[in-house]
Each structure stands twice: as C-alpha cells, then as structure tokens.
Design a protein around this nucleic acid. Structure first.
Lengths: 225, 225
DNA sequence: ATTACTAAGACACGAGTAT
DNA sequence: TATACTCGTGTCTTAGTAA
C-alpha cells in the first residue's frame, strides 16, 4: 500500500503538470506546495524517485520531474476508485453557473446547424447561445457526471466547402423551467469553463436573466428502454 | 489544506461505501484498511468527526460512519483535479482484456438492432458479440477516458410490443486490425467488467482467438471538423 | 465486544550546514 | 543558488489498559 504522504506528493506533482511533461521545480517550491520544509520535500521526492514513481534530472536551478508510468498509474487508480465510489448512479445532475456574454459567433453556428438541431432535438433553436460560466467545483464534477450519460449526437456536415463537425448535446432544463440543451462543439472555444446552452426561445428574455446572473442546468436523461 | 492522512482516511471510508450510506466499521477494521493500529484509527476517525468530515454513531459492535457533505466535497475536489490533470491530451486510448464466452444472448440483440447498426456504424454486424473481460486498472482507466469521447448513439425502438433502448457505441480497432465497435446497452448485463464488441466479421475466427486470449481495443475517434 | 486514554517509544521533521 | 546530509527536537504511533 502506497503511503498517503507519497500519494500526496505525486498528486501535487501532477498538479504541476508532471504527468504529461517534465515539470520544473525546486525542493523549496515543492515544500511550499506540500506544506512541508525544503528538507522534507527533498526526502519525499528522493523516495518517490527510488520507488520508481517519478523520474528526475537535476539542473542548475531546480529539477525536471516527471511521473513514471508507475506513478501515473497510482493516480489513475485513485481517480478510478473515486469515480466508482462518488459518482452517484441514478441521481439528479445539476450544474450551476453564471451567465456571461459570448462573442456573438454562437448565433452563426446555431443558424448553421439549425435544421439538424431541429431534427435531433425536436425544436428549432433561437438564434444564439446562452453562455454559462462554471465557477464551482460541484458543477465541474456534475459536468463530468453529465458526460458519463449518453448524449445526443448531432452529426456534422459540409456546406459550401466548409466542414461542420459533430456536436454533442445534453438535454437540460434551464432554471428547472425551460427546455434546452447543452451543446459541446468538437472544436471547443472555451476550455471546460463555459457551457453553451441553446433553446427554442430566447433564454435571456424569457427567464429575465442578464450577465452574471446564476442559472441552473438540470440534466434530462435520455429516455431508456 | 487538508492533511494527507485525513484525506486518506476519507478515501478508505468512501471505499467502504460511506459516501451514500452509513458504513459499519470497527476501529480495528479501519486500522487494517489504513495500515495503522486500532488506536491510531480511533484517533483519525475522531479527528475527522471533530472537523466535520464524517458523522458517526456508536453501536454495540462497531460504529456507523458516513461522510458529511463537507467530507464528500473534499473527495470530489480531488477527483475533479485528477480528472483535469490525468485525462487525455489527445492520447491514444487502448483497452486490453481477455476474451470470455458470453451467454449467447448477445447474438439475439445484435440481430434485433442489426439494421440500425448498419445505419449508424456503416456495417451489418456479425450475429454475435465478442465479450472482453477487463482485468487491469490501466484498461479500466482507458474505459473512463473512452467514455469522455463522443460516442455514436444507436437510437432505441419498439418492436412487437417490446422496447429496445438506446445503445452507445464507440468505434474500435480490435487487435489494431479489424474495425468494430464497443456497444454499451443501457440495460447493462455485466457491470463494468465486460465489454461487448461487434464487428462485420466473426472476430473469433478472423483473428484466430479463443477464450482467455488477450485482445486490444484501440478507440477510433469520431471524425472531427 | 467495543472505543479511547496514558505513557513510552519510534520516527518524521526541520535547523544547520556540507556539497 | 541548488540538493541533501546530520542530528536534536517534537510529534505521531503504538502497547497496555481503562471504561
């Protein structure tokens, strides 16, 4: 069994990006991140290297550290266990976030996909998207759970030499009242921080919401056999 | 910052199901799980209770422990962070597993869905499924990553009064050679341990594989814009 | 059975410092 | 600057045992 302190060290290193690339760190910086002294950080990282959880090379000012496969595997094991244990089966998934203004390009895409949305979702969307910025970890977690549920896929197409990719949709109730859908374009414009919501109506006017207002998105599961 | 030891205690408790229900545990059992003595386990759990991470009631033989919202939130935070840090940057997703024999019912369902598979996947599947048992954590993790990618949804239907639910599919290359698809029926027969794979051909004969042989499933991402 | 207190011991930590 | 050694100190652990 891997000791909690070792695990925590790997976790912090991963946070610094040491999973996919070599992170540049000093033992002092690592100590700060771990909440321990430079000396203890040194001992910890030496232990991790000895046990084969990380690979390390020294440089003039600091070290390049990267998790080995063994190290990353430990973290994956924990993540998988947490997913199994925490993710509630058959529980309501609610995402909360704040309304932010978009770049206006949402409307262009909605219009382009409009007939296809109509076909897949059953409504002709209002020409524009409601951009919802995610601000809390519960909602981030809820998004992960949402992504574990079966989505509706709106197939891509080519129009006037331009190709439009598949769009992944999840049906939602906005503020538990208005039907809509979260749409996730493959070419994602806004990291994981902003969700785009479409609906048959103008959500801003219908729900009387403006920038920075809180909205909730309650996932509507696809009908099952 | 929550101490690693405290975190690990919550993690082990979660493992015992203390997230969604009250777990029955003794300090001795918990000590074994944590790799510490009964006394230390007692102190740890007392601390967690004092800090409001768990609620606890004593009974004649052991205690009923459940994570509070605060405690569960800590674990969710870690899970979310791990997901962000570990999950794929455009990395190949490969699942490995062993061939096991099915119950024969796979063929029935494949036949029932056959025209729809043809429509969505582009091939008429061989009448039967290859059941692949997942045996290692890397593959379990890979399955989680697979589920974060956009799937193909084969819509459900009703036939002769019987309803067939949506089926979620992911295109794969079996042993990096034969095109196929992992199909995940909504009414899941085998927990998360077994994946069902369909293909246009009889995979067993084409790849010359038999029960207990190892096969790899390499996810083929949907074409993107 | 349990949980948890006390006291003795182990061992992890960090200051100082060598490299 | 780095990292990492020694070593005194203190904390955390565990054995014994009470409740």
């Amino acid at each position: 069994m891997i000791a909690p302190d070792v695990w925590f060290t790997l976790y912090v290193l991963a946070h610094e990006g040491a999973v996919h690339k070599r992170a540049v760190l000093t033992t002092r910086k690592l100590g700060d991140l771990l909440g321990v002294s430079q000396q203890t950080a040194s001992r910890r990282v030496t232990y991790c290297a000895e046990e084969g959880y990380v690979s390390r090379v020294h440089t003039a000012n600091g070290m390049l550290i990267q998790l080995t496969k063994k190290g990353a595997k430990e973290l994956r094991r924990v993540m998988t266990n947490l997913e199994l244990v925490l993710v509630p089966r058959e529980e309501e998934i609610v995402i909360a976030g704040r309304v932010v203004h978009g770049l206006g390009e949402g409307a262009y895409y909605v219009d382009a996909y409009s007939p296809r949305f109509h076909e897949s979702l059953g409504f002709e969307p209002y020409s524009g998207t409601l951009n919802v910025k995610i601000v809390d970890d519960d909602s981030r977690s809820a998004i992960n759970r949402m992504k574990q549920t079966p989505p509706l896929i709106v197939p891509g197409f080519t129009y006037e030499g331009r190709s439009f990719g598949d769009v992944v949709c999840y049906r939602v109730k906005v503020n538990q009242k208005i039907d809509g859908a979260v749409v996730i374009a493959q070419r994602t414009h806004h990291g994981q921080e902003i969700l785009e919501v479409i609906s048959e109506v103008n959500l801003r006017s219908k729900l009387k919401i403006k920038d920075n207002d809180l909205v909730t998105l309650t996932i509507v599961p696809l009908h099952r056999a």
